[in-house]
Nucleic acid binder design. Structure first.
Length: 627
DNA sequence: AGCACGCCGACT
DNA sequence: GTCGGCGTGCTC
């Protein structure tokens, strides 16, 4: 993280090129990058009656079609090849990014091993009409750089609002449009709000971008496409729910909004504020090492938390007696019930003691294939036949995890035939059904759903939240399994009324994620999790990347493996065949400079990735494992 | 990424 | 004999 001067939107010239001053024979040539996996820019002739500057989007012919690209430089050439084709039209009336904005986008591209063009274009608002003013020169004021602030605990959003009430320019980044809408409404009470997310139409977004840049708007709300919005020094950038995986969705720009903001904040002396009930382990670690500040936590009123051990109850029964009892009580009191179901069933565990079988080397749960009868570590590739008895307790009932929504619903209906029960599993199928489900769930007393269903409930809205089988989440073959489970349990607890109850059915009742929620103590979780991460070399102590290679013909996997083996700073795990799809996955571990080292090691292989659906994808700092 | 060119299999 | 698979290379 280097501290530079200047910031994203500054010093973009309003008139980048003045033809009148050039000798009559000189022609302007613009270098343009596109959303394509090619690094080098393409050159175009700038028509005499057109003015373009770096940081401005234009449309130009490429490969037989007109495409939108970003101008990265303009040159004056006395001799221009006749083969150079002209720019077709302007997409933005003026540059959206200044020189430091372009430099920042280039830096980000290097971090994510994604082409400059793909990165920059993915971080800009969709092209729309209405942008008439150039990016303003920002007023530089002396600002003491502040350490990023993490607001946790109850009332964290209230405290963010208080901070945003001041005179400072502020940009609020959310993970999704729905949340952006909520924040826009809240902020409207403070000042006029420019919406930069897709909840606003294109013209409104473009106008908002410039309104913020020119100081005509003080507050703005957006998603990832607002991350490069020009801001004056001293402005605030807030990230809502910092721990959410949705801040790094699949596909370009393959960047976590948190990392973009931290880097931008350091470069431009911005005030960075994150909210999160359960900060990411990376962010917690920053706070511990004083690279960020955790705001003193005001604990919320917490519901009673019960860990119910389902061992010994029939395997046909989804609900333990404590859950049935609590359901009856909640329904009798007229309070709502949420039953969380984790649909994954990819691990093997012991029915007797609750142990989840893990790879000794990597600490992640083995994946279980019933067809092939093998346990496989998705990370290092180690495979083995299932054990006959549990190595921990000698138990003989070894079963795959498996409570799906359907089975739980049947089980619950048998027990509570007269309750209004609805299912909510929006991930299951797309389309209209999602809306129907939502409507049904809104009127139901009992909602049975996957983790996505939690957002149906506001704080304190539930009488009971019960997790049917969170061991399925804890047992995922992912080193972030505990972190994700912890965040989910905590979020559920916040949605339960203080007089209500949170029940977790688990065969691992002493797991630190469960204990931390029961005790309402964040540190209990992060202490144990950081120890695990340090011992086995996971983030934040080491960085990871996942390379997906599709091995068509020519031994590409072998070439990639050989290239990685040559880099001493990297640990590359052996390639693992991807179940279902054709291809292999290679996990790479490295230090803080992982992107640079990886790029150097792969060399040409990175640029030679031509193929139908991605011959080679490189995901740096993955949040969710590709299965 | 798209798209065209180009060389080997099964088919109206 | 063609139609079409996708491997290879290019796009200003």
């Amino acid at each position: 993280m280097s501290r530079g001067d200047g910031h994203v939107g500054d010093e973009a010239p309003a008139t980048p090129h003045t033809p009148a001053l050039m000798s009559p024979s000189a022609r302007s040539v613009a270098d343009v990058v596109f959303d394509a996996p090619v690094e080098q820019p393409f050159s175009y002739r700038v028509p005499d009656d057109m003015t373009v500057g770096a940081g401005q989007r234009v449309a130009a012919p490429l490969g037989g079609a007109e495409r939108v690209g970003l101008v990265v430089g303009v040159r004056e050439e006395s001799v221009v090849s006749a083969r150079l084709r002209p720019i077709t039209r302007l997409v933005d009336a003026a540059p959206l990014l200044g020189p430091s904005g372009l430099e920042f986008a280039r830096f980000l591209a290097g971090q994510s091993l994604t082409s400059f063009g793909s990165t920059a274009l993915a971080l800009l608002p969709p092209p729309g009409p209405g942008a008439t003013s150039a990016v303003a020169s920002a007023v530089s004021e002396a600002v003491t750089p502040e350490s990023p602030l993490v607001l946790s605990g109850s009332g964290r959003e209230r405290r963010l609002l208080d901070r945003l009430a001041g005179p400072r320019v502020a940009l609020v980044i959310t993970s999704d449009v729905e949340s952006a809408g909520r924040w826009a409404q809240r902020l409207e009470k403070l000042a006029r709000v420019a919406r930069l997310d897709s909840g606003a139409d294109d013209a409104e977004r473009a106008a908002g971008w410039h309104a913020l840049a020119t100081g005509r708007a003080r507050l703005a709300v957006g998603t990832r496409s607002a991350l490069l919005t020009p801001l004056p020094a001293g402005a605030t950038v807030a990230l809502i729910d910092e721990h959410e995986a949705a801040h790094k969705p699949p596909g370009p720009p393959r960047l976590h909004s948190r990392d973009v903001i931290l880097e931008r904040g350091a470069r431009e002396a911005l005030s960075v504020v994150f909210t999160s009930a359960t900060p990411s382990v990376e962010m917690w670690w920053r706070c511990e090492s004083e690279a960020a500040t955790l705001a003193s936590v005001t604990p919320a009123r917490w519901p009673a938390v019960t860990i119910a051990d389902p061992r010994g109850i029939t395997r046909r029964e989804a609900l333990t007696p404590p859950v049935s009892r609590a359901m009856r009580e909640a329904l009798a009191a007229g309070r709502r019930v949420f039953l969380e179901v984790s649909r994954v069933s990819s691990g093997l565990g012991c029915d007797e003691c609750g142990a989840i079988f893990r790879c000794d080397r990597c600490g992640v749960a083995f994946g279980w294939s019933a067809v092939r009868r093998t346990l496989t570590c998705w990370l290092c590739g180690a495979g083995r036949p299932p054990m006959d008895t549990c190595p921990q307790c000698g138990g003989r009932r070894l079963t795959p995890f498996g409570w799906g929504v359907e089975r739980v619903e049947q089980s619950v209906r048998r027990r509570f035939p007269s309750a209004r029960i609805a299912r909510y599993d929006p991930e299951a199928r797309r389309g209209r059904r999602g809306e129907d489900q939502r409507a049904a769930a809104a009127g139901a007393e009992v909602v049975i759903g996957t983790r996505g269903a939690l957002k149906l409930f506001g704080p304190g809205a539930l009488g009971l939240a019960a997790f049917i089988s969170p061991d399925q989440l804890l047992g995922l073959p992912d080193f972030r399994a505990a972190e994700h489970t912890f965040a989910l349990l905590w979020a559920a607890a916040e949605r339960v009324h203080p007089e209500g109850e949170l029940i977790v059915q688990s065969r691992n009742p002493s797991h630190y994620a469960l204990e931390a929620v029961a005790q309402q103590d964040l540190a209990t979780f992060y202490r144990a999790e950081l120890k695990f991460r340090a011992e086995l070399g996971y983030p934040p102590f080491r960085r990871l990347a996942v390379i997906v290679v599709r091995p068509r013909g020519d031994g590409l996997v072998e070439r990639v493996t050989a290239a990685l083996a040559g880099a001493r700073q990297l640990v590359a795990y052996p390639p693992i065949a991807i179940p279902g799809r054709r291809g292999s996955r290679i996990v790479v571990k490295g230090g803080p400079d992982l992107p640079q080292v990886l790029a150097a090691a792969l060399g040409d292989l990175l640029s030679v990735r031509r193929q139908r659906p991605g011959i080679m994808e490189v995901e740096v700092d993955p949040v969710e494992w590709p299965f």
